[in-house]
């Protein structure tokens, strides 16, 4: 297959029929390859160009430089969205990993009915963010949800009104996000725990190390790459947060739980400020790149190193 793209050098080369047969794989791949490359490169370039234009209600292609970006960063709502993203990411990633790790370690203790427990902890992942957000928004509503329930148990001063408090609404999204994603962290951690060489654990046990010590010193360090993978994936979820916040708080109260993805949607399709919306979309892409580029480089580096060490 080396020579598909080059004309055959030999005069008595393969017949056109053979050459066609050789080109088949590339010809079959070409349409979907082209579609994907357009999607990745042309779309990104297109949006990047719009973000440097004076587009408002409709995209126009008059280049005005970085002004949309300046407007974006001068906008209070964008700054709140950006700030929210940092806080949300931190709590959500750490929370989901902590819960996921705890569940994975507990399930790893040879519990009965492992499949049932795993099914319970993972099912939120099959359900959409819209469904999750809608249901949790009901549970957070003080006069119908958790607050009412706890009060009906007799604790009449109990308050649990996260979504109506502009300082706390973000944490309602954090809790729901953790609820939804910790099963994912659990599944990956559990796979990691199962892959640890049993001989190393046995050696540590013979040396008299306790369970906690074995986990802290032996098992968890060997699955460090999985921590990183889980973190990167969860950060990606966090940066793309849109459905969950829309369904749960719709960005409110006020603009307290705006996220960058909501801002893009709003500016492009509600307010007709397409250039600034495109600039915000590019910022989301940049945030993803900040997370993913170092991670991919690290993966490549690790692969090379493993290759060298045999």
């Amino acid at each position: 297959m080396q020579s598909v793209l080059e004309p055959s050098a030999a005069a008595a080369g393969p017949s056109w029929r053979e050459r066609l047969a050789q080109a088949v794989p590339f010809l079959v791949l070409a349409p979907s390859l082209a579609a994907t490359l357009i999607y990745v490169f042309v779309f990104t370039g297109w949006t990047l160009y719009i973000s440097l234009s004076n587009s408002s209600l409709l995209p126009t292609y008059k280049f005005i430089g970085l002004k949309p970006y300046a407007d974006l960063w001068a906008n209070t709502r964008w700054n709140i969205a950006y700030h929210n993203l940092f806080i949300f990411s931190a709590f959500y990633v750490v929370g989901a990993m902590a819960v996921g790790l705890l569940l994975a370690i507990v399930i790893d203790q040879r519990v009965r009915g492992e499949a049932i427990w795993r099914t319970i902890f993972l099912y939120p992942l099959a359900v959409s963010f819209v469904v999750t957000g809608t249901v949790w928004s009901w549970l957070y509503t003080p006069d119908t949800g958790i607050q009412l329930f706890v009060r009906s148990l007799g604790w009449s001063n109990f308050t649990f009104a996260l979504t109506t408090d502009r300082n706390l609404a973000l944490y309602a999204i954090v809790i729901t996000g953790i609820w939804q994603s910790s099963g994912f962290a659990m599944a990956l951690f559990l796979a990691g725990l199962r892959s640890v060489d049993q001989d190393i654990i046995k050696a540590a046990q013979i040396d008299g190390a306790g369970v906690f010590r074995i986990y802290a010193r032996v098992i968890l360090p060997t699955i460090a790459p999985i921590f990183l993978a889980v973190m990167v994936v969860l950060l990606q979820f966090a940066i793309k947060t849109f459905d969950l916040a829309i369904a749960l708080t719709n960005g409110g109260p006020g603009i307290a739980t705006t996220f960058p993805a909501i801002y893009v949607y709003d500016l492009m399709f509600q307010r007709g400020q397409i250039a600034q919306g495109a600039a915000a979309a590019i910022m989301i892409l940049a945030a993803l790149a900040v997370v993913l580029v170092p991670y991919s480089l690290w993966l490549v580096w690790r692969k090379r190193r493993e290759g060298k060490n045999g």
Partner: peptide, 9 residues
Amino acid sequence: MPGQVALMP
């Protein structure tokens, strides 16, 4: 790719 980047195209 984040969906937002592909919206206008």
